[in-house]
């Protein structure tokens, strides 16, 4: 059986920064208000010439060698063999916060109600039923796609675009397409 590694293609060229994906996640899991499994990161003007007009929509990157898994003292993180999804087992978690400190992408977050960590599950329960993850389903412009990183041609996509933490050895399952600017006609006033 060939290996599968699911991952996200963040197409910032198409992304309209509508926050739909992030809210679709809240709609599905109703995490406490401050807990956001998926977040939109606005790009600053050095990456896209207008602030808050380019975005990276990021959640857990389901890394090949997850930092969270390496940090967890109780073995709450497992990486599924069948599709590479990194799953956090709430029952095992003791809320030490070490995964939160360790993940350079900010995926695990502290749930103040449960006093445990949690993160994007890639909707594995939905995947197992043949459904799309909530965020991917919700995207109105197909700017957020789920791909099998073992099979898909990723050669034209960026692994570490500007504004995304460069890491070595973790190999996050996420690839990017950068936003583009239109031709701009505007009058500069004195």
């Amino acid at each position: 059986m060939s290996r599968i590694q699911l991952g996200f293609h963040i197409n910032a060229k198409k992304c309209i920064g509508c926050f739909t994906c992030a809210m679709a996640c809240k709609n599905m899991y109703h995490q406490p208000v401050a807990v956001l499994w998926r977040k939109l990161y606005p790009l600053d003007e050095s990456i896209y010439p207008f602030s808050h007009r380019g975005f990276y929509s990021l959640a857990c990157n389901h890394c090949e060698t997850p930092a969270c898994q390496a940090a967890c003292p109780v073995g709450a993180y497992t990486k599924r063999v069948r599709d590479g999804v990194v799953i956090h087992d709430q029952d095992k978690c003791i809320g030490c916060g070490n995964c939160i400190r360790s993940c350079p992408f900010g995926a695990p977050q502290y749930n103040p109600v449960l006093r445990k960590a949690e993160k994007c599950s890639l909707c594995w329960q939905r995947l197992d039923q043949g459904l799309k993850p909530a965020c991917v389903l919700s995207c109105p412009v197909e700017a957020l796609e789920l791909k099998d990183f073992c099979k898909a041609d990723l050669s034209s996509l960026l692994a570490f675009p500007p504004g995304f933490p460069v890491t070595s050895g973790i190999n996050p399952s996420v690839r990017f397409t950068l936003p583009q600017s239109p031709c701009i006609v505007r009058q500069e006033m004195p």
Binding site: Y41, L43, Y56, R101, P104, G106, G163, F164
Partner: peptide, 12 residues
């Protein structure tokens, strides 16, 4: 400062 606090911001 956490690496994730600066996602979307230039490395510069």
């Amino acid at each position: 400062v956490h690496a994730a606090d600066h996602i979307g911001k230039s490395l510069e």
